[in-house]
């Protein structure tokens, strides 16, 4: 995982046809909070093995979209259909960093063991602890295991959360704002990690981010969401299209130059 590398997948995408190519179908989903329409007839397909990024302003419904997909919120209308081999149980979730109070007195290992299946007390289960540690080591995070959550940098914390989400061997990962609160170096690590997970572990990745630099570097496709789907397509097309100016008022700044 040294270099950012969008190599072809382990399996041949082109050989799959129609619905078989899909990991997740979101069909005409609407969500209301109180009287407010937060998602309005959202249609989106997530293809197997792709990295699909959601971009859009704050309050655009990106987190809500994820929560609907994960079954945390019941949509007012529409449905969520998982592709063959995909399900809620095989979907890993990394929520926004701010949604977890890192001052809680938990160690990294304690957090990880909370996602181990079929275990009520985490004082036992040496084999499972080893499995958790192995997952962390896979992401070059073995040295973090004994630290307290409050001792982690933003990047290290996201690495731990990704290790956490991998413990149930998911086929798809949902990452909500993975680079928010992460420094430059940490973001660089996340870029490599996300590409590694897709390329080497064949994971499908659905991500929301404000970090257009990260989005540009890792995404296959980008969806512009602002309560409804405004644009969806190849990363380059969407990121350089006119849509973005509406949201971010970028004044023609070129992302490629930064990349």
């Amino acid at each position: 995982m040294e270099t950012v590398n969008k190599s072809p997948l382990a399996f041949d995408l082109a050989s799959l046809k129609g619905p078989e190519r899909l990991a997740l179908q979101v069909k005409q989903v609407s969500v209301r909070y109180g009287g407010e329409l937060v998602l309005n007839h959202v249609d989106l397909d997530v293809r197997r093995g792709e990295i699909l990024s959601l971009i859009g302003p704050n309050g655009a419904g990106k987190s809500t979209f994820f929560k609907v997909a994960l079954g945390l919120i019941e949509p007012a209308a529409g449905e969520i259909v998982f592709g063959e081999g995909f399900s809620r149980e095989t979907t890993g979730y990394v929520p926004q960093m701010a949604a977890l109070d890192r001052n809680m007195p938990f160690s990294v290992m304690e957090l990880l063991t909370l996602n181990l299946p079929k275990q009520r007390f985490w004082f036992s289960g040496t084999a499972q602890r080893k499995a958790a540690l192995a997952k962390l080591e896979l992401l070059d995070g073995g040295h973090l295991a004994r630290r307290g959550l409050h001792e982690l940098s933003g990047g290290e914390f996201q690495k731990v959360m990704i290790a956490y989400s991998l413990l149930r061997n998911p086929k798809m990962l949902i990452l909500d704002e993975p680079s928010t609160g992460v420094d430059h170096e940490g973001t660089h690590m996340l870029e490599r990690l996300i590409c590694h997970l897709r390329n080497e572990e064949s994971l499908t990745i659905l991500m929301a981010s404000h970090d257009l630099h990260l989005v540009q570097l890792v995404s296959d496709r980008v969806c512009c969401l602002n309560r409804e789907v405004c644009a969806v397509g190849g990363a380059g097309d969407v990121l350089h299209g006119h849509y973005l100016k509406e949201f971010y008022a970028l004044g023609g700044r070129d992302f490629r130059a930064r990349a």
Partner: peptide, 21 residues
Amino acid sequence: LLWNLKAYALGILQPDLARVQ
């Protein structure tokens, strides 16, 4: 509390992570 230790701990840390389980 011990029987539901994992659930309560996760509920304290991040309720959504408990719900997705």
